[in-house]
């Protein structure tokens, strides 16, 4: 049973990590909590459903279009909502409230356009998973786990090596100094939204295939992704991914011993423990 629970934890952790990484990337640059990130994941999952199941496009074409759409959608959110608010010198609390409002708005729009019932993308046939060291895992779940690891490395190199990544870190570190040396902070905010949301697009596709689509899926995802990001260190993308896996493991191993109704309780107890004992998270830096 251990190996199966380990795999279960790995799958759950990978899903949380997919959500947490984009969320954390946006937070680290823009320094506010973009709760609507969960709804962006949900919207992109529905967009894939629209392209693939309703319009009948080729699956891989639909996937690429969905990821492009997700990046564009993130850029649009930043441009028409957050940028306007920042221009008016809105505080981070106001941005946070706006993001919660946007989360609810987007979920309601999904409900309006697609209805309340669960949707399936239906690209993968349900079958018995593959045996792997005494545990069972489906090919899609392997893709999910690999994707989250690949993202971890790509994001790491992106922020450390690429020009935009470095500029984003500069803005994150000290906005004023970055602007003095000629980096446009607004431009970096846009980039962080485009990249963060494109990752949300990947998350939306994989989660949509694995867990199917519901209008309220975004809230559930962002709660767990947010918890993972806090545990790992909210400003740090690798930390967020690490925290997400830790969360996935503790939830699934926890209910090995405890009644399974305590699954969510375990997640939030860990959140509180971290907030009290190590608020900067595993990989976060102390201010």
């Amino acid at each position: 049973m251990f190996s199966q629970l380990f795999i279960n934890g790995l799958i759950a952790g990978a899903i949380y990590a997919l959500v947490a990484s984009g969320f954390s990337l946006i937070y680290s640059t823009c320094k506010f909590i973009h709760f609507a990130h969960g709804a962006v994941v949900a919207v992109t999952a529905y967009i894939l459903y629209l392209f693939f199941s309703l319009l009948g496009l080729n699956f891989w074409l639909a996937v690429i279009l969905t990821i492009i759409f997700a990046g564009f959608f993130g850029w649009l959110i930043n441009k028409i909502l957050y940028k306007k608010l920042r221009k008016r010198k809105a505080s981070n609390v106001i941005l946070l409230i706006a993001s919660v409002g946007l989360l609810i708005l987007l979920e309601s729009l999904i409900l309006l356009f697609f209805g309340a019932d669960v949707k399936t993308i239906g690209f993968i046939k349900i079958a018995k998973g593959l045996e792997f060291l005494g545990a069972i895992i489906t090919p899609l779940q392997i893709v999910i786990i690999i994707s989250s690891f690949v993202l971890l490395f790509l994001l790491f190199f992106f922020t450390k090596k690429s020009k935009i990544g470095k500029a984003m870190r500069a803005v994150a570190d000290n906005r004023d100094v970055a602007e003095i040396v000629g980096i446009s902070a607004e431009k970096m905010f846009s980039w962080s939204f485009i990249i963060g949301s494109a990752i949300a697009g990947i998350a939306g596709i994989l989660v949509g295939l694995e867990q199917n689509l519901e209008p309220t899926m975004g809230t559930n995802l962002i709660i767990k992704g947010f918890t993972g990001a806090i545990i790992g260190g909210i400003g740090s993308v690798p930390g967020a991914i690490l925290g997400s896996f830790l969360l996935g493991f503790s939830e699934n191993f926890g209910i090995w011993f405890l009644p399974s109704g305590y699954k969510d309780a375990i997640a939030f107890i860990i959140l509180f423990v971290f907030l009290l004992a190590r608020p900067q998270g595993i990989l976060g830096r102390k201010k």
Partner: peptide
């Protein structure tokens, strides 16, 4: 609201 029943099913 749960979507992941794997651990319950494993038990």
């Amino acid at each position: 609201g749960a979507v992941d029943f794997r651990t319950q099913l494993t038990k």
